[in-house]
Amino acid sequence: MRRNVRLLVHQVRAQNRFFWRVPVGAFFTLILPILMLVLFVALFGNDLDFDGPAGASVSAAQFYTPALAVFAVGSATYTNIAINLSTRREDGILRRVRGTPLPPWIYMAGAILSSVWIALVSAAIMVTLGVIAYDVNIELAKVPAMIVTFAVGSATFATLGVALAGVARSASSASALANATILPMAFISNIFIDLGADPPRWLRVTADVLPLKYFGVAFSEAMNPWSDAPAFVPDRLGVMALWLVVGALIARWRFRWDPIPGSTGCSARRGRRSAS
């Protein structure tokens, strides 16, 4: 038990180090959503013309800060894990790990927890920036609900990332699939744009069965000064938790540690071996 905890802590630390060692990845995960916040607020001004939850009008910053915080959490977990795991599988690193005494679940838990940590950092940066630079409101009473939502939401998207790495055959297809799923989902889930009171029915239904919308709603509720609605709604968490279970089942069924024959392997990447 104590040994496993020690190994897990070590894994999380190492995975974090991997993350920071690849600046492009860190940029996309951390900086891009912040850049979007700055851009959107500049474009739309800070007037009260966005539909907040419960019919209230809110400023662009009040709308986008929680929404993009949630988007940042999504890319730090879902996109990041899908790309990382499939790249490491393709390179044969996961196969190497499987040959060591490290229990595979600890490796996996390490990857998930480290991405949740990065998600926490990016959400915190986003919210802090909104509060300090754009006068965004935050309801202290709802912060505990926000934390619970974050925990469930980030665990869900991290698990879905593992599932996607299980489904994708190569790192490049994992990366394409991650973007091809999370970006449209963000568009229909009130993350990038305010869909207004009545979007087309099929869009709404699609968004209703997917997990991202609930994550976004719960976050904006927690920061919305005019809403009496509680940030903590078991139904919303329930939908996310359902997706967590679905993701876990797909991951269990499809995830492989060995490189998939036919996908570009480490030999191609590392070039011909020659002695030195």
Binding site: F18, D91, G92, R96, G265
Partner: peptide
């Protein structure tokens, strides 16, 4: 066990 596979990647960024 010590395993040296015919080809297996190493974490390049470390």
């Amino acid at each position: 066990l010590g395993i040296v596979l015919q080809s297996a990647g190493i974490d390049r960024e470390l």
